[in-house]
């Protein structure tokens, strides 16, 4: 009988695949139960749709002190100040705490200063971000962005860096000489998003065949071969 409920629900739902999500109580109790759940879901939807939804998310994670400055604020300020002082005064475009991600300190750095910033972030005694855990490329349709997630294995402090680049001729200096692990990650981003990494030792495709046309993860990607 719970199968019947499920299929009916799925048919009514705008997004069918969400229908099978909840385990249902059997029998007549299911109806009232489901009504209650529907109401809850509707409330949650409304809450999520409110304009200040980002602030809402952060207050959910730390309900008791929503407005207090984050303990990670000094870490962000320190990193930003160091880069401004030791790389270039205008190197940091933006510095903010990513509330959705547990207040991850995030810095947006200008592409021309990125390589020097990377050296600083890795070697400066008060940052020492020696472990590059992830490199992602993102196509925002207005611009491209490369995101670097770093962590210091000693102090366990995390930093995220973003480098924005033009969409028509995207180019971000390679940090492979700073962190070896960037090597394949940058190749993958080049392959799938077409971002050039000047200074990379061997920037060739890694996932797609060498003669592939286009970069599949770009939002405007059109398959070249109609059969593919």
């Amino acid at each position: 009988m719970s199968d019947e409920h499920q299929t009916k629900e799925e048919a009514l739902s705008p997004k069918g695949a969400d229908g099978g999500e909840r385990s249902e109580a059997p029998g007549s109790a299911a109806d009232t139960d489901r009504e209650a759940r529907k109401r809850e879901a509707a409330e949650a939807r409304e809450a999520a749709a409110k304009p200040g939804s980002e602030a809402g998310a952060s207050s959910r994670t730390e309900p008791e002190e929503p407005r207090k400055p984050s303990p990670k604020q000094p870490q962000l300020d320190e990193a930003a100040a160091l880069i401004r002082a030791l790389v270039a005064p205008d190197a940091v475009e933006e510095a903010y705490l990513n509330e959705l991600n547990g207040d991850m300190p995030t810095l947006v750095v200008k592409a021309e200063h990125w390589r020097k910033t990377a050296e600083l972030v890795k070697h400066h005694p008060s940052l020492r971000c020696d472990y590059l855990r992830n490199v992602s490329g993102v196509d925002y349709e207005t611009h491209m962005e490369v995101v670097y997630h770093l962590v210091s294995l000693d102090s366990r402090k995390e930093l995220a860096f973003k480098v924005r680049t033009d969409r028509e001729a995207p180019s971000v200096p390679s940090v492979t000489p700073v962190w070896q692990t960037a090597n394949w990650n940058e190749r993958e981003i080049y392959d799938l998003l077409g971002i050039d990494f000047p200074g990379h030792p061997n920037l060739v495709r890694i996932m797609m065949p060498d003669d592939w046309v286009g970069h599949p993860l770009r939002k405007d990607y059109e398959p070249f071969d109609p059969e593919v």
């Binding site: 969400d18 999500e21 759940r37 529907k38 509707a42 980002e54 809402g56 959705l100 991600n101 992830n134």
Partner: peptide
């Protein structure tokens, strides 16, 4: 075994990076 989840899962605009320890690493 299921929490209160909205009918349609629609995370707020923004980004997140999470990591866990799989048998092979991070």
């Amino acid at each position: 075994t299921m929490g209160k989840v909205p009918r349609v899962i629609r995370p707020p605009a923004g980004e997140v990076y999470v990591r866990i320890e799989s048998p092979r690493g991070e």
